[in-house]
Simulated scan of single mutants.
Amino acid sequence: MKKPIIQTSATVFLIGGAVARQETVIRLAGMVNLIVAADGGADVLRAVGIAPDSVIGDMDSASAETIAALPPGVLYRLDEQDSTDFDKCLRHVTAPLVLGYGFLGSRVDHQLAAMTVLTRYPEKRCILVGEDDVLLLCPPDLRLDLPLGSRISLYPLGPVRGDSEGLQWPISGIAFQPDGRVGTSNVVSGPVRLRFDSAKMLVILPVTALDHLMEALSATPASWPAL
Rank of each mutant, 00 (worst) to 15 (best):
K3M: 11
I6S: 03
Q7M: 10
T8V: 06
A10P: 01
A10F: 04
T11I: 07
F13N: 00
F13K: 00
F13W: 02
R21D: 10
R21T: 01
Q22M: 03
E23I: 02
V25Q: 04
V25S: 07
N33R: 15
L34D: 02
L34T: 14
A37M: 07
A37Q: 02
A37L: 03
A38R: 01
R46A: 14
A47G: 11
G49R: 07
A51I: 12
A51G: 02
P52T: 01
I56A: 06
G57V: 05
M59Q: 09
S61Y: 02
A64T: 12
A69C: 08
G73I: 09
V74Y: 06
R77D: 06
L78K: 12
D82I: 01
D85T: 04
F86I: 01
F86K: 00
R91T: 11
V93E: 03
T94A: 13
T94G: 04
T94K: 14
L97V: 00
G105N: 04
R107Q: 10
V108P: 00
V108T: 15
A113F: 03
T119F: 04
T119W: 03
Y121H: 15
R125A: 09
D132N: 13
D133G: 02
L136I: 01
L137S: 11
L137F: 08
L148D: 14
L148C: 10
S150T: 15
S150G: 13
P159I: 13
V160L: 08
R161P: 02
D163R: 15
G166I: 07
L167M: 06
W169K: 08
W169A: 08
S172E: 14
A175C: 10
A175E: 14
A175N: 14
F176E: 07
P178Q: 08
D179R: 14
G180F: 04
S185K: 13
S185Q: 13
S189P: 02
G190R: 11
V192I: 13
V192H: 12
D197T: 10
M201S: 09
T208R: 13
A209D: 12
A219K: 15
S223L: 08
